[in-house]
Structure formats: C-alpha cells, structure tokens
Write a protein that binds this DNA or RNA. Structure first.
Ligand SMILES: NC(=O)c1ccc[n+]([C@@H]2O[C@H](COP(=O)([O-])OP(=O)(O)OC[C@H]3O[C@@H](n4cnc5c(N)ncnc54)[C@H](O)[C@@H]3O)[C@@H](O)[C@H]2O)c1
Ligand SMILES: NC(=O)c1ccc[n+]([C@@H]2O[C@H](COP(=O)([O-])OP(=O)(O)OC[C@H]3O[C@@H](n4cnc5c(N)ncnc54)[C@H](O)[C@@H]3O)[C@@H](O)[C@H]2O)c1
Lengths: 217, 217
DNA sequence: CATATGTTGTTAATAAAATAACAATATTGA
DNA sequence: TCAATATTGTTATTTTATTAACAACATATG
C-alpha cells in the first residue's frame, strides 16, 4: 500500500523506499522459517517465495549490512535480528492515537504492532462513550488532555483514525504540540509544515489496484 | 491527447501502478472541493495540495481520459464522475471476509468502503462467539458454509483478516472455491496460482518507512 | 587434493517513473 | 480587437528501480 510521499533527504546513500517497504515482508517470512527450524535460506529461495528476482533480494538485504555465505545462503536467525535492528522494530516508538472508532480500536487492541516497533501509549476521542475507557492498558483521553500528556510523555508519533473531515484539525493540533511524524489512515490529504513526516495509509489505493486487475485484465 | 480506456494485458498504454494508487487520493480531494462548492481546479492547485509536481498530476489525470480547459482547469464534478467510473468505484464488487476479529470487524462496520467500490456480503470465522452474529447487515458464517455460499453468490474477491498463521490455509480454500482476487491484510506472504490476483496491505511497510524517517534523517 | 557447482555480491544494462521543457491555445483584460 | 498569460497536454530528459551479467569464492564431491 503505498503512496510516495516527499521526504527531505540529505543522505546520498539512503535506502530506496521500495526496499524499505519489502523488508517487513522478508522479516515475516524469516520468522516463519525459524518456527520451522530452517537455519539457512538462499536469495533464490526467498525470491521464489515472493515471486521476485533473486538479485533484487540480494540487493535489498545488502542494505541492512548482512553477509550471506556462498553456497549456503543467509543465516535465518541473523537475518531476523539484523532486519529488526535495521528497521528499529525493537525501538517501541511511543504513539498517540486520535479517533478510537472501528479502526482505532482495532489498532490499539492489536498486540502484533509491538513486535514491529510501535507502542500506542494513549488514545484520544471526543465521544463521551469511549473517553476514559481502557483498552489493552491503553487509556482513552478527552482531546483537551493532549497538551499536558504531550509534554509529559515526549511522544513523537501521532496516528489519525478520526472521520475524514476531522483529519486536518487533528493534524494541526499535533503539529502545535510537538508531534514529529503523522500516520494518517484517512483518505484526506493533510497539510503540515515541511519538517513534519507524513505517511498515508490508503486502503483505497489497494482497492483501486484490485478492482483494476479484476476488471481490466 | 490519447484516451486510454483499455487496460488489457497486451495494451501498451496500461496505466502505471503509481498513477492508479494516486487516483483515490485525488478523488477524495475533489470530493472535498465539491463540498466547498469549488467548480474548477487546475493541475497546479492539485499539485500544491499534495506537494507534488503539476505535470505529474496532468499525466495521471490524462489516463482517465478527462479533458481540462486551458486557463480554467478541470471541472470538479466531471473529475469525480470520471475517476469513479475509471476505477470502477460504483461497481459494488462483492467480497467475502475471513477472520472477523479486530480488523475484520472494523472493515465490515466501515460504511465508507461502499463508496470506493467494495461491498462485503458475508463474513466467515471459526470462533463460535462471532459465528451467526450480524454486523451491519453482514452475517458471519462458519467456514464450512463458504462452499455453498460461494456457489450461490458468485463472489470474486476474498479478504483475509485471520491471524497470520492461518492466511495460507484460507487462501487455499479461496482458490479451491473460485475466488479470483485475494486481499491479504496479514504480513504473511501467500502462495497461489499465477492467475489469482493478490494484493497485500502491509501496515508494517508503512511503519518501516515512518520509523526510518524519524530515526535516520 | 582438485574440480565442479551453487551462491553471493558487484557492476552494467534496461525499464519505469518523475521531472523538465515547451508548444498550443483558450481566456482575460487592456 | 488583440496582446499577455495561465494552463493544458505532449515530448524529451533525468532520475530511480529492476533485471541481467558476471566475477569471486566457499563448499561439496570424486
Ligand atoms: N474502519 C475501517 O476499517 C477503515 C478502513 C480504512 C480507512 N478507514 C479510515 O479511518 C477513519 C476512521 O474510520 P472508522 O471506521 O474507525 O470511523 P469511526 O466513526 O468508527 O471512528 C471515528 C472515531 O473518531 C472519533 N472522533 C470524531 N471526531 C474526533 C475528533 N475531533 N477528535 C478525536 N476523535 C474524534 C469518533 O468519536 C469515533 O470514535 C476514516 O477516515 C476512514 O476512512 C477506516
Ligand atoms: N488489528 C489491526 O489493527 C491490524 C492491523 C494490521 C494488520 N493486522 C493483521 O490482521 C490480521 C488479524 O488481526 P486482528 O487483530 O483482527 O486479529 P484477531 O485475533 O482479533 O482476529 C482474528 C479472527 O480470525 C478468526 N480466525 C482464526 N482462525 C480462523 C480460520 N481458520 N478461519 C476463519 N477465521 C479464523 C478468529 O476467530 C478471530 O475472530 C493479523 O494477521 C494482523 O497481522 C491487524
């Protein structure tokens, strides 16, 4: 699911975004290999699993700094550790989530995100029916507590799962109170200063691709 | 400018996937313009909203066949209608959803998907606590009713929101009973015959990008 | 021990996408 | 009416990503 977002880059040897996006998929595959007690895996085997070119796998993995062994392949445990390290998936980045509705609740309840580096530490909503609830140890606060909690907790990442129409006002609030990166699940494009990182997750883009493939080929 | 209507496999003028993925974002923007009674919009204004190059906007829109007016821009209503038509977002493609947990429930309950061409017509689960429930007019069935319902309803699209470890077995079942396209929300890569369309929605890829931007620039 | 072979990892070639350049032209306003 | 100009839409160029080619080499095998 991906929409290329502009990002300031000073680093000339930066990892290509397509590579970055493929790494979590590799990781998931390697974890399942580990469960099946597979010790080594070659770029060819990885490529076959994802129906892609093996040289692309090699190139992708080389960005993480991992070394394979000729005629043997890559050590699965090492692959897992290296990718987790490379992607900061053990960083437990703290995040605030705004809009604890259907999707917001699913994200908060989903424990899997923790092993991919994300720790949602608080939710915010305007609906009295959800405010002050606790889901999975995550407390839901009224919006006006954001300011104080932001100061206290030093959170850099904010997630928007409010209705589309509220996305911009929440984004403005986030910027005002020190959020550095915004993960936007609404289809609405939000406007923020250049130094703020924005990542849009658009299931609609995926849907567009699926319908196009179903109907036009 | 050439109108590109057919996107068959052999067609030289097939729409690039990046373009396809951007169209729903444009659509959302145009809808908000319509709400604000904006009648015309130029590629420059669109580009400014998304912080992108205006020629790319022009190119993207040209694939849908829409014509702009020099010095005026594009008609907003026409843009909306044309993109919806182009993306088959009024097709109400029927879909089965497997695994009515946190995420599956959110998708079923989310009415917004209807205006993006998707109509989830039934859910399937193994948990007795959810089987036979009805969410938003969508009934949850036990897995073993899939075969009969599949025959009856002629559904082409299947959604996987089960736990990761079950993704492959559900995919196999789908293929066996005639599903043509699979939308996979698990990080697990699934193996299916070449003629089956697979779209993976990976929030982990988005997360990888966010953490990379936060920590490495 | 020596040779054949599978695999990595690098460099070169190709393909795809984004950006730039620019020509055509409809609209505005003097 | 006519020149100035904003905007589309095409073609060319540049950039980025993928695929191909191949050299290096560790391992297995005879
Ligand atoms: N539900 C899904 O499966 C799904 C899938 C893809 C995208 N989305 C997107 O996610 C967003 C939310 O969808 P949803 O189905 O969870 O909606 P929802 O209506 O269930 O939840 C929205 C929540 O936001 C809260 N809210 C409203 N205004 C707020 C504000 N100003 N500040 C804080 N909270 C506020 C509401 O009280 C509600 O709890 C939408 O933009 C939708 O397009 C949802
Ligand atoms: N929850 C999220 O926000 C979220 C976000 C991103 C990705 N995901 C992915 O979505 C998947 C589901 O996540 P979740 O949080 O909804 O999990 P969940 O445990 O809440 O839901 C899984 C559901 O699948 C059902 N199930 C189990 N085995 C099944 C089978 N063989 N056939 C049919 N149904 C079966 C379970 O009964 C349960 O209702 C996971 O792979 C997860 O990685 C979830």
């Amino acid at each position: 699911m991906r929409i290329r977002t502009s990002n300031g880059k000073g680093d000339i040897n930066q990892i290509p975004e397509p590579t970055l996006r493929r790494l979590p998929g590799y990781l998931s595959f390697f974890k399942s290999l580990k469960i099946n007690n597979v010790e080594f895996v070659s770029s060819g085997q990885i490529a076959a699993n994802f129906k892609m070119d093996s040289t692309l796998v090699t190139k992708d993995l080389s960005y993480t700094g991992i070394k394979g062994r000729t005629k043997i392949g890559y050590n699965v445990n090492l692959l897992i550790d290296t990718i987790i390290q490379f992607l900061d998936f053990n960083s437990q980045e703290k995040a605030f989530l705004f809009g604890v509705g259907n999707l917001g609740r699913a994200l908060i309840k989903y424990q899997g995100l923790k092993s991919y580096g994300l720790h949602i530490v608080a939710g915010f909503d305007i609906d009295p029916a959800v405010v002050n609830n606790v889901l999975n140890d995550v407390k839901i606060h009224p919006i006006d507590e954001f300011r104080d909690l932001s100061r206290k907790m030093n959170v850099r990442l904010g997630i928007i799962t409010t209705p589309d129409a509220k996305a911009q006002e929440i984004a403005d609030l986030m910027v005002a109170w020190g959020i550095k990166a915004i993960w936007n699940f609404t289809p609405q494009s939000i406007k923020v200063p250049d130094n703020i990182i924005v990542e849009n997750t658009s299931v609609y883009s995926d849907l567009a691709v699926i319908l196009n493939r179903l109907n036009n080929q």
